[in-house]
């Protein structure tokens, strides 16, 4: 293309009949380069015309349209529950549901259980945390009576009397720290 040639978009518009500038038309007649571009758009149009997919309606097309059209109320409901409105309602409805579920779950959740210090749990069951159990809290040395009282007050051993009389425990040999295989 030469310096005074129209740009491609102008040539395209000429080829498509979007414009009919005499000057540009005269230029294309005399400029081989521009004429080639012009003709390529025309050829492209010819090529595009070769795409003819089968688009015959099925025999029940009209019947389906008429049947749907004869049910305006049902179609109106589809507006609410069908695809079109769902696209827009889905997000806010989901968000509102999540908030409701969250509020209900929060209201019905049990009050938090007070957490016992680790040293107490370890003392009850040395196997759980032997390292901590081996070292009783130095700041609060306890007498035997205090320790028994503490065990009775542990939440996991609420029914101390029942557990004390539990057969399996009572049958263990005294002083034995482990059960025979």
């Amino acid at each position: 293309m030469r310096k005074n040639c129209p740009d491609r978009e102008d040539i395209f518009m000429l080829a498509k009949g979007m414009t009919s500038e005499r000057e540009a038309l005269a230029h294309i007649t005399n400029c081989a380069g521009c004429r080639k571009i012009f003709e390529s758009y025309r050829r492209l149009d010819d090529v595009l015309e070769q795409w003819n997919p089968d688009a015959q309606a099925s025999p029940w097309f009209d019947a389906r349209v008429r049947a749907a059209a004869s049910q305006p109320q049902a179609r109106g409901m589809r507006g609410f529950f069908g695809l079109e409105l769902n696209r827009w309602l889905a997000a806010p409805v989901l968000a509102a549901l999540l908030v409701m579920v969250g509020v209900i779950a929060f209201r019905h959740s049990p009050p938090p259980v007070p957490v016992k210090p680790v040293t107490q749990v370890a003392a009850v069951h040395p196997a759980v945390a032997p390292a901590q159990a081996a070292k009783p809290a130095p700041a609060a040395p306890q007498s035997g009576a205090q320790e028994v009282s503490m065990y009775q007050n542990l939440s996991v051993l609420e029914d101390y009397d029942m557990l004390a009389g539990f057969d399996v425990i009572s049958e263990l040999p005294k002083g034995s720290s482990k059960v025979a295989d």
Binding site: D54, A55, F61
Partner: peptide, 23 residues
């Protein structure tokens, strides 16, 4: 019917879907 269906077939390719959309 015909022109609209042919428009949908070219737009979405699938004939079944095109017919649903035309309806």
């Amino acid at each position: 019917r015909g022109p609209l269906l042919s428009y949908f077939v070219r737009m979405v390719r699938d004939r079944g879907l095109a017919e649903d959309l035309a309806q």
